[in-house]
């Protein structure tokens, strides 16, 4: 296989897995700017070692492995630099193992996410929209919906649990329990 076929093949594989890979990185490093750096480093590393990748084997797993290395590096760096609250290596390893064991299920569930979001009440969608669409910190979300910060944390966390139940198929109702209307 010549070099440009190889490049095309890589681009294709990456395009297929890009979104899932991004979600993987953000799962462990939620801050967008940091996740972005890690993703870029990961993709370049994948390209550099693409020669060692055996076509037909699991590209997603291979890519996650490469990303995980960088996530470890990043978190160690971050922990040293800024006394940031960073999970220990042991804890992160356990989490990464758990993710890998059930990776297929987890990714399939996320295909149902937007459908579940659509089933939320308009009020809850608005709250999610403020937090994610407008990227407001919880304090600002609280101001906009005229609630306390504590109450807003609670609503948001209940929305998350309701969405989780919905994507897992364990809850047919996506109304968070005992949620007072504003």
């Amino acid at each position: 296989m010549n070099d440009d076929d190889r490049a095309e093949q890589f681009i294709q594989l990456l395009a297929q897995h890009e979104r899932r890979l991004a979600a993987y990185v953000i799962t462990f490093v939620p801050r967008s700017a940091d996740a972005d750096d890690i993703l870029q480093e990961t993709k370049l590393a994948l390209w550099r070692s693409f020669d060692q990748f055996e076509i037909g084997t699991n590209f997603g797993a291979w890519a996650r492995q490469a990303a995980l290395h960088r996530i470890f590096d990043f978190r160690r760096r971050k922990g040293r630099e800024s006394k940031h609250l960073v999970f220990s290596d042991a804890c992160l390893e356990q989490l990464a193992d758990a993710f890998e064991q059930d990776v297929h299920n987890r990714e399939t569930q996320m295909e149902r996410l937007s459908g579940c979001v659509a089933k939320l009440s308009p009020n809850h969608r608005q709250i999610l929209s403020l937090r994610y669409g407008e990227e407001l910190p919880v304090q600002d979300v609280a101001d906009r919906i005229d609630r306390t910060v504590t109450a807003t944390y609670r609503v948001l966390s209940r929305i998350r649990l309701a969405l989780r139940d919905c994507v897992c198929g364990t809850g047919d109702n996506v109304m968070p329990a005992s949620e007072p209307t504003p």
């Binding site: 993987y24 990185v25 969608r125 969405l163 989780r164 897992c168």
Partner: peptide, 29 residues
């Protein structure tokens, strides 16, 4: 661990799909 991963993974997708959310109320995502 499972619950934590589910929630963080869900958050990742919500971050990635903010376009869906900003279009709420428009009928289709």
């Amino acid at each position: 661990r499972e619950l934590y991963l589910d929630l963080m993974h869900q958050n990742a997708h919500l971050q990635l799909e903010r376009v869906h959310l900003s279009a709420f109320g428009m009928g289709s995502a």
